[in-house]
Design a protein around this nucleic acid. Sequence first.
RNA 1: GCACUCGUGGCGCAAUUGGAUAGCGUGUCAGCCUCCGACGCUGAAGGUUGUGGGUUCGAUCCCCGCCGGGUGCACCA
Length: 561
Amino acid sequence: MDYKRYISEHIQIEGVTKEELEGLIAVPPDTSMGDYALPCFKLAKVLRKSPALIAEDIAANYPADGVVSEAKALNGYVNFRIARAGLAKDVLSRILEEGENYGSSDLGAGKTICIDYSSVNIAKPFHIGHLSTTVIGGALYRIFQFLGYHTVGINHLGDYGTQFGKLISAYKRWGSREEAEKGGIHAINDLYVRFNEEADEAMEAEAREYFRLIESGDKEANELFDWFKSLTLSYVKGIYEKLHITFDSYAGERFYTDKMAPVVEELKEKGLLKESNGAQIVDLEPYGMPPCLILRSDGASLYATRDLAAAIYRKKTYDFDKCLYVVAYQQNLHFKQVFKVLELMGKEWAKDLVHVAYGMVSLEDGAMSTRKGKVVWLEDVLNRCVEKAYSVIDEKNPSLENKQEIAEKVGVGAVIFSALYNNKIKDIVFSYDKALNFDGETSVYVQYTCARASSVLAKAAEGGFEAALPENYTPCDQEFELIRALSDFPDTVKAAAERYEPSFVARWCVDTAQKFNKFYFDCKILQEEETRAFRLALTKATLSALTAGLTLLGIGVPEKM
RNA sequence: GCACUCGUGGCGCAAUUGGAUAGCGUGUCAGCCUCCGACGCUGAAGGUUGUGGGUUCGAUCCCCGCCGGGUGCACCA
């Protein structure tokens, strides 16, 4: 039941459409005021009457019924109270029917959305700074899928540039197959770090030469590069499995090597290309931006050139309705420039490109620096959180089976959640103290709540009690608050998609878990016979909805912990 | 210097894009396990939303100035 629509359809105001009324209806800050509210201030202009009078007028004429039980004017608002029994039945029957699909829809049916996220660099281990793009992108991927969109997850591999010449040079100088196979990607990264520390002009020149060899198809250079690439991919695969991340394409920068020349040609044809200091640029001065560099003075392509080619390729290949780039805000200007250039090229779909920018991660003593060894590796964080989870479980629930498996869900979930709980634009200062603290607003709290609900349901099954929705059951305050939270979930998921904010879903999970815990303490679920069936239904519905929420975020839900 | 961005109790963050008495967690203090899982619940203390103007019936939110933090600004990605 869409209550906003229902209410708006029962109000008659001359000169104001039902749709306008529906758009005005909001939720009061405090449920003691009511369940929905119509602010009358904007109507005051149209009707040339004071908001208070309009509110009183609407309230007096509103036909209360079994759906909306009350309309009351207060301070220029009309507050509506929904008949609790009806709302409860509506929401809970829907959740019990749909289970973990509650909140899903076909809103995006027939639409395609490309999401570029994670985008790892070859031969670089994952550090904590890569977490946001990976889990935000992964969550958006699932959220859009949940809403019926066809989603294309793209890992735009960083596999192009002189850095790979450096890597080969470093490997040939100091590396060996055995060490690399034993030490994996970290061993290779160490070589790269050493190269940067020791490189002189001659070594830099050598690196450039190796990169040229990769480009020109030299067999040895390419074999090495492909080997580094396969080591990297098998390494990241392990991490993606833990984080529940998937991709449909691994087309990285190198993939666009042969797709850039036509773009440059097109820019030239359209008269957008200009020479400046020996380089080829698109002048963006009229738009208040620095020029977009297309070709270096030595003729080589640049980052922007590849992103132009990639965008055009994606449009051609996937015919997307939207293409998201989940990339840190450092690249704000870059994407603004690239999008503008595409627009100038006459690509009317340039408006469908969205830079989903998020904040950066630093450490307590400043920015991360691979060269100075000031790095926090993601796998270390994951391992330590899983260990911590294990020790807590071992302490509180020593007899539990498959403790390791549950510790994985809890520990990894905590890491994912920490990157998804706040607005994505916020910077994050990483500390192990915070990462290992599972109290309060964390995934662990939500998981614990789920385990508690599961436990009640298991006890009910033992006792032969069944969940049911009796006719005309009027929920008490605690029950009703929880039901209201549950009813918000579908809109929350939609808002998360519209604003590219997985944090909305994360916040909803915590909020709903809080309401469940209040309900749990104030209302005995199994004890009292008259309320038992309904409360079991409420418990079951809560578990389904919370599971749906956590699953969208990529977080597992243990039955026991 | 210019552009973008952030600034909310000690600390970390919300506030349904302009609505009612600004919420939550953490930390501090005080309570609650003979009662469905205490990784939990209840209560107390803690705020001039950086600052000064403006717009508005109404501003944490929009506009302008200032202060402070972050990021970016031509051949790296």
